[in-house]
Design a protein around this nucleic acid. Structure first.
Lengths: 150, 150
DNA sequence: GACAAGATAATCGTGTACAATAAAACATGA
DNA sequence: TCATGTTTTATTGTACACGATTATCTTGTC
C-alpha cells in the first residue's frame, strides 16, 4: 500500500511557491523601473562583472541563449544594455551596460534593499535558510547528472 | 556609498536556482509518463482531493485559470483527466481523474519516491529546510499585501 | 591552405506564469 | 421581474525557460 503524497508536505512545492512569491515581490519592488526579476538579475550580473558575452552571462545565471537572447533584446530596447558582436571572436556577442544602467545602479540597489528590509528577516536566519537551500540545490545537481529515467 | 549586491549571496537567487533544478529533476523522473512538474502537482492535488473545479485546483496550487486552462487541456488530451461543465453551477468546470490516472497513481508515487531517495536527504533535515522556506514564503506574502511601489 | 571538430549565438517549438479583459452564469434586492 | 453586482472560467498578450536545431565562426591538424 502506497501512502498518498501530500502536496503541502513536499519541499519542492514549498520552493516552487516561494520562488513565485519572490517573483511577485520583485515585480512590485521593480515596477517603477519596468524590470522583471530575470531582467534584474541579468543587470546584477553585469554590474558585478562588467561587459560579458551572452554565454558568460548565461553561466552566471544558469540560463541558456534561448532565454537570454529575447530577454537581452528587451533590455536593449529599454536602454539598459547594448549588444555587439565581438571583434576578437565574431561568434561572441558582448553585452555591456549603458550609462543609464550605470547611473541608476545605486538608486536601484537602495530601493530594493529598502523593500527587502520590510520583509523583516534576521540576518543569521537569512544565511541559514540560504545555506540549506544551496545544499538542496547541490544534492539535486548531483543526482540529476545520473539517470533517473531508467 | 552603496555596496554591490552579489548574486551568489542572495536567497532569492538560491531559491530561483533550486526551483529550476527541481523542475529538471522531475522532468527526468516523470519523463516516462510525459508529465511536467506543474502537470504532476495538478494530478497530485486531484489524487488528494478528488474531483474539483478549476478554481479550487487553482487555490491548492496558487495558479490562476490563465495557467491552468491550457495545462488542463493538455492533461485531458493525454488522457489523465476529464473536464465538464458543472450541472449545478454552469460557470464551474469540474475536473476529474480518468481511470488511467487512478490506475497509475501508485506506480507513479513509487517511481517518484524511488527517484527522490537517490537525492539522499535526511528526513529531519528535509523538514527543517521546508519549514524555513515556508517561513520565508509567509513573510513574503505578508509584505506583498502592502505596497512596495511607493 | 583545406578541412574536420568544436564553440557560440540565434531560432524554433512547447510549456508554463500572470495581468487584464471578456463572457457567461448566478445571487440579490427593489 | 429585472437590474445590478459577484463569481467563475476562458481568452489574450507579454515574458520567461529549455531542448533541439541551425548558422556562423574559430581552431587545430594535416
Amino acid at each position: 500500500m502506497v501512502q498518498p503524497i501530500l502536496l503541502d508536505e513536499q519541499l519542492c512545492f514549498s520552493i516552487y511557491k516561494a520562488q513565485k512569491q519572490f517573483n511577485h515581490f520583485y515585480a512590485q519592488a521593480l515596477s517603477k523601473y519596468h524590470l522583471t526579476y530575470p531582467q534584474y538579475i541579468t543587470l546584477l550580473s553585469l554590474w558585478e562583472h562588467g561587459t560579458m558575452s551572452v554565454k558568460q552571462v548565461g553561466q552566471t545565471l544558469s540560463l541558456d541563449s534561448g532565454t537570454l537572447t529575447p530577454l537581452m533584446k528587451r533590455l536593449e530596447k529599454d536602454g539598459w544594455i547594448s549588444r555587439s558582436r565581438s571583434t576578437v571572436d565574431e561568434r561572441r556577442v558582448d553585452v555591456s551596460l549603458t550609462q543609464k544602467a550605470e547611473d541608476l545602479r545605486d538608486e536601484i540597489f537602495e530601493h530594493v534593499q529598502s523593500c527587502a528590509t520590510k520583509v523583516g528577516m534576521d540576518l543569521d536566519e537569512y544565511r541559514a535558510v540560504k545555506a540549506s537551500v544551496d545544499k538542496v540545490h547541490e544534492k539535486l545537481m548531483a543526482v540529476s547528472d545520473g539517470d533517473l529515467r531508467y
